[in-house]
Design a protein around this nucleic acid. Structure first.
Lengths: 120, 120, 120, 120
DNA sequence: GTGGTCTAGACCACC
DNA sequence: GTGGTCTAGACCACA
């Protein structure tokens, strides 16, 4: 996995987002075992505690669950995953709309630009 | 200014993007003088050479021009700025569409989601 | 405040419980400002991060809220506090029932013993 | 055995309580020989003198008796054990009632809450 | 070897 | 001076 981070948002939130994406995209299928915290942390080049925090947030949201001795697992509840997908999309949209506003486009203009862009 | 960077894209491209945004938004107005490279580099906490590279790209595109002795200036050509604005928007859109595709939404679905999200 | 801890439960959970009690009992009234994390941590003789974790849990439950620069405050929502009171009571009851079961008394026996004990 | 302690009550009283529980629950059966003081102290991670004090209290109450050369034994008197059980229960009840009062519930309310909680 | 907790100490943004 | 984040490193229970 290629982890990447921005400097202006907490790393643990970005980890949460990227792990969510891995689950949604099926790279971590429903019910499957996640890699150990330490391994994932080493892979992402962050402190294990930081990754722990991200995973605990995901746990609170119900997307993953921990079994103390045997590891962490993706939820088997497909609805949960579907919901995470929608929430992730909503966040992306909000962030995008905000960026476009920063550039100087209203939502309507943005929608028009996307449509036009795609037709090209 | 609050500079922020991602780990997975060249810094100079991100600098270029953010400076463009400052110009578009009028924080660096048309015709105005840009701060010295060293100051900007220190502010953004990047190597002056990196910033230099970003500015040279902006020069090549015509958004900025240099005067031998007195520094760099934002173009006075408002059309140029308008064009930069559109290009920046196009890049944002492409990146966003790509992200949404990664989550699992087509462009049509994405457009629908934005409309719905805004109405809420 | 006299903080006290058991060795067999996470400190942050006990902190959460004791702070909840302070709020319920009105020592930290609704809407009032809590002491700074560092002060409370020093007072309780725990690491600020541990106290932080307890407070963030309370925040997630809605019992307190943070204002980044000016400190943490108890919620103004009295219903929230009432609810916390009931939840705290429920936890105490569960723990007590469990203890009595460990000694060898059923719930019915325990209820009888309490009634008897009070009449004395 | 999993020993656990609170910071706000004398350790020897807590040791006494937990040993009593071991006797009541039959883990140290009536008439059986207790482990050597040093072993128990090491297990509980307390000073042998502290454990000694707890055992002397238990002796004074008649729950345990010492034989000069061969160690300490649990009493064979089942009534004694029964009595210890009731006393331990009484202590738990008092402490629990006090806690519930601290939260803001009378004994009557507490009894009602327990009944309700159990039915759920 | 797994997740969980705790400490110490640092740096940051915000006002 | 406030809360928030991150790192490094340690120890624990569990099986």
């Amino acid at each position: 996995m290629n982890w990447s981070f921005q400097t202006d948002r907490p790393i643990y939130l970005q980890l949460k987002e990227q792990i969510t994406l891995l689950i949604i995209s099926g790279q971590y299928p429903a019910g499957s075992r996640l890699p150990p915290v330490r391994d994932m942390a080493a892979d992402a080049a962050v402190n294990p505690n930081t990754l722990q925090k991200a995973l605990q947030e995901l746990e609170r949201e119900g997307l993953v669950y921990a079994q103390r001795t045997s590891g962490r697992f993706v939820t088997e509840d497909e609805k949960m995953i579907e919901q995470a997908k929608n929430q992730l999309a909503a966040e992306q949209i909000d962030r995008f709309i905000e960026k476009m506003a920063g550039i100087g486009f209203t939502v309507e203009e943005t929608l028009a630009l996307i449509s036009k862009r795609v037709k090209e």
